[in-house]
Simulated assay, not measured.
Amino acid sequence: MVKSKQGFWAEIRESVPAYLLILPTLIVFCVFLYTPFVNALRISTYKYNGIGDLNEYVGFGNYAAVLQDPKFYSAFWNTFQLIGADAVLSIGIGFLLAYVLYRGIPLKRFFSTALFIPYLISMVVIGSIWRIIYDPSIGPLNQLLELIGLGDWAQPWLSNEHTALPAIMMTWIWHTIPFNMLIMYANVMTMPNDFLEAAEMDGATSMQKLRYVIIPYLMPTFATLLLLTVTNDLRAFDMVWVMTQGGPGGASEVITSYVYRKAFSTQNFGTATAASIIMMIVMVAIMIFSQLLRRKEGAQK
């Protein structure tokens, strides 16, 4: 017992330099992350307009108000539609482009650089550009439809409640495809040549190598990109706000624009903070679930 105590304190003494090295990081985390989070939890239990002291305590009343608000569920549904479309189309198209670059095409470097440019542009700039593209009067999209004889399809894309959200989805996907393409291209380039050589010796065709070698090799990458897509799309705001501000009539409202509107349009910071905390809980739950799923798949293997 004495030896174990001595060993314990010896380990503590040896760890002191390490604790001193991470102490500045811990202080920064506490000051800039945990302290605001605790303050947000406190604000979410008060009726607060953003000015003055916290006086009117409502407990979980703000959470109840959010969970009883149909607009919150509409914004949540719109957000998950965006996530679903982004996960399927952006990751899928990104994989196809990565595979084409991997197989090799003329001017490969030029195309790999050109395809990545949309990801480098600011979301606000992208929203402004595509807002002009979708404009019913001067927008090139409607003009193109008129030119090819599909004028009946021309419409006010961002002012129509049936097309506003799909239009934002297409813009968002256009922005996220390059990132997914780059990550998958980088990973497929690290694949050992032995895998493909063994498949070729067995007489596998190009499609069989794609299905049985390349795609299984990239499955961990797909899982990572899916997690990044979910967490990133849950925070979608700037493009949505620039293009439609959640309109018309909440048709393109997402969680972040709902929180912003509650805080700065109705001056109800308590409810807005409660909604943001609910969103954070959902994000944490998704991350925990994905990690548990990965561990389960790893244990089965």
Rank of each mutant, 00 (worst) to 15 (best):
V2A: 13
S4I: 12
Q6T: 12
W9E: 08
A10I: 08
E14M: 03
P17Q: 10
L21R: 09
V28D: 10
V31I: 01
L33D: 02
T35C: 05
P36R: 12
V38I: 08
A40Y: 00
R42Y: 06
S44R: 04
Y46C: 04
N49C: 03
V58Y: 11
A64N: 04
A65N: 04
V66E: 13
Y73N: 10
F76D: 09
D86H: 11
D86T: 11
A87N: 01
L89Y: 12
L89P: 09
L96R: 04
L97P: 02
A98Y: 01
A98C: 01
K108V: 08
T113H: 08
S122Q: 05
G127S: 05
I129Y: 05
Y134H: 06
G149V: 00
G151Y: 02
A154H: 08
A167I: 07
I168P: 08
I168H: 11
T171W: 01
T171N: 03
N187F: 10
M189Q: 15
T190F: 04
N193L: 13
N193H: 14
L196Y: 10
L196A: 07
A199F: 11
D202S: 09
M207Q: 09
L210R: 00
Y212I: 05
Y212Q: 13
P220M: 14
F222N: 14
T224Y: 06
V230G: 04
L234D: 02
L234W: 01
F237L: 04
V242K: 00
V242T: 03
M243T: 00
V254C: 06
K262D: 15
K262C: 13
S265R: 05
G270S: 02
T271E: 15
A272W: 00
S276Y: 02
V284N: 12
V284A: 15
L292F: 14
L293W: 11
R294Q: 10
E297M: 15
